[in-house]
Amino acid sequence: MLTFIGLGLYDLDDISLKGQNAIIEADAVFLESYTSILTGTSPAELEKRYGKPIKILKRQDVEQHPEPILDAAKTGKVAFLTGGDPMVSTTHADLRIRAKNLGIETRIIHGSSIVSAVCGLSGLQNYRFGKSCSIPYPAKNWFPRTPLDTILSNLIQNLHTLVYLDIQETAFMSVQEGIGILEQLITGDSEKISLYVGIARAGSENPVVAAGTSEKLKDVNFGPPLHILIVPATLHDIEQEYLTLFAGYAPA
């Protein structure tokens, strides 16, 4: 049995009771560490709570070398832990397909996801979001324009864009870094982005939500990770009021 368990957004207490019980009953526990992390806790604290070792997985462990996970699931109960909801990532969908093809029973225990949390924190209506995108840290001779193209395409359709910010082993992209990369990619007035919404530490006791121009958000102290960015389209009256009340937005 391979059980995919979402840990939620921020700390140890975000998990559902169903997910918690599945970890307690598991013979082996794996935690993937590359699509999201819970910055309000640590693997050591997870091990302490559940009284069992947790194997930390990198991207290549899941995508290229999943045999230890699948072999354990053939003969016992395996808990595969992820931040947020476990099936937001296509990597996890691929792992479930592999398990199914090997005759391994699987199930999903969902967790709270940033996809829905951003709507509650920003007030932007969920059905008005278009295709999401990710901003990676640029590398030598590699500065992809794809995220900007996705945002501009959504804006033409009057759709909001959820923009995931890069997570690496030693670095977590900030709202300001993400905006800076987008601003570097913009080549003219036709590609202007007039409004951003930055969110930090969704799911925590004190998340930070701020809306405004790139210049305004550069001066906002979003604090520690994780951060995420939204580029809104034209605002509905309720969306505008919500951002004004809860994100410090000052309409021009």
Rank of each mutant, 00 (worst) to 15 (best):
F4Y: 01
I5V: 07
I5N: 00
G8P: 12
L9W: 00
D13P: 00
D13A: 08
D14C: 12
I23W: 01
I23D: 02
E25R: 14
A26R: 11
A26G: 12
A28Y: 11
V29R: 01
F30D: 09
S33H: 01
G40Y: 04
A44D: 13
A44C: 00
E45Y: 01
E45M: 13
E47M: 11
P53Y: 01
K58M: 11
K58G: 09
R59F: 00
R59P: 09
Q60A: 08
D61T: 10
V62G: 07
P68M: 04
I69M: 10
I69A: 06
A73S: 14
K74D: 02
G76I: 09
K77Y: 03
A79Q: 08
F80M: 08
F80E: 08
F80R: 03
F80S: 05
T82D: 06
D85A: 02
M87C: 08
V88G: 04
T90Y: 07
H92N: 15
L95K: 03
L95N: 03
I97R: 06
R98G: 04
N101T: 08
N101A: 12
L102K: 11
I104H: 03
E105Q: 14
T106R: 07
I109F: 04
G111V: 02
G111E: 09
V115S: 12
V115C: 04
V115E: 08
S122G: 06
Q125E: 13
G130S: 12
G130P: 04
K131C: 00
S132V: 04
S132H: 10
P136L: 07
P138Y: 08
K140Q: 12
W142Q: 04
W142M: 05
W142S: 02
F143V: 05
P144M: 01
R145K: 10
T146F: 02
L148Q: 03
T150E: 13
T150G: 06
L152V: 11
N154F: 07
L155S: 07
Q157D: 15
N158M: 02
H160M: 06
T161H: 01
L165S: 10
L165C: 10
D166W: 02
Q168S: 14
Q168W: 03
A171F: 07
M173I: 05
S174L: 12
S174R: 15
V175C: 06
G178K: 03
G178A: 02
G180V: 13
I181P: 05
E183D: 15
Q184F: 11
L185A: 13
L185K: 13
D189S: 15
S194R: 09
L195A: 03
G198V: 04
I199Q: 04
V208G: 01
V208D: 08
V209M: 11
A210T: 14
E215W: 00
E215P: 03
D219K: 07
D219G: 00
V220A: 06
N221D: 10
I228M: 14
I230K: 10
V231T: 09
A233E: 00
L235R: 10
D237C: 13
I238M: 15
I238V: 15
I238N: 01
Q240C: 14
Q240T: 03
F246S: 05
G248E: 13
G248V: 15
A250C: 14
P251E: 11
